[in-house]
Design a protein around this nucleic acid. Structure first.
Length: 555
RNA sequence: GCGCCUGUAGCUCAGUCGGAUAGAGCAACGGCCUUCUAAGCCGUGGGUCGCAGGUUCGAAUCCUGCCAGGCGUACCA
């Protein structure tokens, strides 16, 4: 619809110029947009404002000339006005919106999709929590954001792969092994001291109990290093299984689980470093090896091989990201916790050093979640084992509420997640507000079928012509914004835009529902309204689907 | 110190490319269920968009400086 108005304006400029009413056919870079205020019309154009300079004419005078030369062959426009400093406001006839409603209905689940991505291959890597403990709520937010960004990119025409990077190598895993081992030794009845850095939570004890059931006291006879290694591998495996299970129940599935250890096993870390060394990007100083990231925008160079000969985590990451591009992804998106933001500059530098463009790598920083219960903060400390796991949150408030609430904020602002609020079935809880629309419409459609014998609703022009109420136009206009919303959300990697779109559409529906009866006296009107609400239901379902939230038939 | 993020109504937050009188929800107050689900709707109040400059027809939005909060600033992961 916007494009139609744009074209009409363009034609008016050309026509006015030909008729000698305008000195030139030059136009500024103007926009057609839906104004915030209803009384500014369905669409507003700032063409007269931005063209005032090239045309050397006062904006309002210019607007008058344009309107005099505006042609409306489709008879879509009811009236126009010149407002404020020179905006042209367009008020459309209801009939102008009816074909759009039919288009949306016809597009079905494809409505809102585009080919903006052109089939480009994108990888979204998210969660990637270390397998040293269960997922907590912060990981849940990252999971919801990452999964939804992936969905939105798919809708925008990208080919998306979801990946989880497993940090199954290095010191944290050893610490995990030691923590479990010491707990095991204690279970066997020996005095032990737990070092500061060891993990404490109940799950460590559970793992130790499991190992004791498996092995009895036999591990005590092994060398400590061997025993710790056994505990580490067993614990990491078990924890990872738990993580997979938690994510599965959260509705998140990964296409690939990528092991850090496998990078070493396949020699990719050494190969990546050798490549950089060969190009002078990795060099030796003070007995360590450094990467020249400062040549690529980082504030200083970074160590990749320490004096003790061990590679750093950064070295693994260089190899891992190189491998991503080697696997053919045009774009790579990492979802990280905000506390890792200091890492972006060096990772971007490494990607560029490896031969990619900077804009082929993007990081979504997900800020922290403050978990509350009835307004009171819930204690969270991983090390001390005092935290609420994602699994517990999902069990308590449900997957839908959890996912939706994680997506009600821009990902770069901190989020208060109140467990009591998430369970409340009031309009303080936005997930029910939106799902309720779907259930209400389902109820209407059931009743239409059962009591009125109306099954499938068709796009009958005569029925559509009955839709003239302000609230009906508001619904169609709200739905019309969906493709643009998805496109912008994809371009900016901002899933919360879809959440807010759904809340807006839901508000428009509830207002309509309270004011007008769908199942009306007049059969033609009833069919028109049924078509309208069926379309709303379909768009709601599609939007909720992007967020990974269900669209219930009954509530 | 340096870097990144945040600062919008009492509270929680929206506000792509600069647009008209800055919008929601909650909380407060007042209304609406014999009719398709009241998990809903309607109405009333409520603002120096952190502060100060600058750019321009026009700034919450762009630029500069400052203030406050969070996070980061390892040969840790």
């Amino acid at each position: 619809m916007k494009d139609i108005i744009r074209e009409m304006i363009g034609a008016a400029v050309a026509r006015a110029h030909q008729a000698g009413a305008l000195p030139s056919d030059a136009m500024g870079d103007f926009v057609v947009e839906a104004p915030k205020l209803d009384h500014h019309g369905d669409f507003a154009a700032n063409v007269a404002l931005v063209s005032a300079k090239p045309q050397r004419m006062a904006p309002r005078r210019l607007a008058e000339i344009l309107l005099a030369h505006l042609d409306d062959p489709g008879q879509r426009i009811e009236r126009t006005e010149i407002a404020g400093p020179g905006f042209i406001n367009f008020f459309l006839r209801p009939a102008a919106w009816h074909p759009l409603l039919a288009d949306i209905h016809r597009a079905g689940a494809h409505y809102g999709t585009s080919d903006a991505g052109g089939g480009q291959r994108v990888q979204v890597e998210f969660v990637s929590a270390n397998p040293t403990g269960p997922l907590h709520v912060g990981h849940g937010r990252g999971a919801a954001v990452g999964d939804t960004v992936a969905n939105i990119l798919e809708a925008a025409g990208y080919e998306v792969q979801r990946e989880y990077y497993i940090n199954d190598s290095g010191r944290q895993i050893r610490t995990l092994g030691l923590s479990v081992y010491l707990r095991y030794v204690a279970l066997c009845g020996r005095e032990v001291e737990f070092p500061e850095e060891c993990y404490q939570g109940d799950y460590i004890r559970d793992l130790a109990v499991e190992i004791r059931q498996l092995k009895g006291d036999a591990l005590l006879d092994e060398a400590e290093a061997t025993a710790v290694d056994f505990c580490a591998r067993h614990a990491a495996g078990t924890i990872l299984d738990g993580i997979r299970n938690d994510l599965d129940r959260f509705g998140v599935r990964f296409d690939r689980w990528y092991s850090e250890q496998s990078l070493f096993d396949a020699g990719r870390v050494e190969a990546a470093l050798a490549d950089l060394r060969g190009r002078g990007i990795v060099y030796e100083k003070d007995g360590a090896q450094w990467c020249r990231t400062s040549d690529y925008g980082d504030e200083k160079d970074r160590v990749v091989v320490r004096q003790n000969g061990l590679t750093t985590y950064f070295a693994s990451d260089i190899a891992y990201h190189k491998d991503k591009y080697d696997r053919g992804f045009d774009r790579v998106i990492d979802v990280w916790g905000a506390d890792h933001h200091g890492y972006i500059a060096r990772m971007t530098a490494a990607v560029e050093a490896a031969g990619q463009r900077r804009d082929q790598f993007q990081v979504i920083l997900v800020h922290l979640v403050n978990l509350l219960r009835g307004g009171q903060p819930v204690a969270m400390s991983t090390r001390a084992g005092e935290f609420v796991t994602l699994a517990e949150v999902v069990a308590e408030v449900g997957r839908d509420a959890a996912r939706f609430i994680f997506l009600t904020r821009h990902h770069e602002s901190a989020l208060d997640f109140d467990l009591e609020l998430a369970k409340q079935k009031t309009n303080e809880n936005p997930v029910y507000y939106v799902q309720y629309v779907h259930a209400r419409i389902a109820s209407i459609l059931r009743k239409a079928a059962e009591e009125y014998g109306i099954g499938e609703v068709m796009a009958d022009p005569a029925a559509l012509a009955t839709l003239v109420e302000t609230e009906e136009m508001a619904l169609i206009k709200a739905m019309a914004a969906f493709p643009e919303t998805v496109a912008i959300a994809a371009a900016h990697l901002e899933p919360h835009r879809v959440t807010f779109f759904l809340m807006d559409l839901a508000a428009a529906f509830h207002a309509y529902y309270n004011r007008h009866r769908v199942l009306a006296e007049d059969p033609l009107l009833t069919r028109g309204r049924l078509f309208l609400v069926a379309t709303v239901q379909q768009v709601i379902a599609r939007g909720l689907g992007l967020l990974g939230v269900s669209a219930p038939e009954r509530m």
